[in-house]
């Protein structure tokens, strides 16, 4: 009997939770705010679904009710992707060691 592909995806999901568990525990507490903003940015990879939905319209009618939701989701996810990565970068630039700031 063949294994349902769902089981494979579910295995990936469970293993990723374990990876997440160990990786996140090793994040230093002083970087918890950047951790939140970067997880925000990467969870916006949901944009792939939005792109699929938006491109599903035919050439004659780019906008149908389903693709409009896709386009809206693209805007929301794009705000998050750009905003999330850039604000994380801005924060991380500020973390400096003692040696760097000697005048």
């Amino acid at each position: 009997m063949e294994i349902d592909p769902f089981i494979f995806r579910f295995s990936i999901f469970i293993l990723s939770i374990f990876i997440g568990y160990y990786v996140v525990w090793s994040v230093t507490p002083s970087l918890h705010t950047p951790l939140m903003s970067v997880t925000n940015a990467i969870s916006s990879v949901i944009i792939v679904g939005a792109i699929i939905a938006a491109l599903a319209g035919s050439s004659e009618s780019v906008f149908n009710i389903s693709s409009i939701f896709g386009f809206l989701a693209i805007v929301l996810a794009a705000i998050n992707i750009f905003g999330g990565f850039l604000v994380t970068q801005r924060m991380l630039q500020m973390y400096k060691k003692k040696k760097d700031k000697k005048k």
């Binding site: 999901f13 990723s16 990876i19 990467i42 990879v45 949901i46």
Partner: peptide, 12 residues
């Protein structure tokens, strides 16, 4: 990609 990310962010 979405499943892995979702699991990472969820556990984080």
């Amino acid at each position: 990609a979405l499943i892995i990310t979702g699991a990472l962010v969820g556990s984080s």
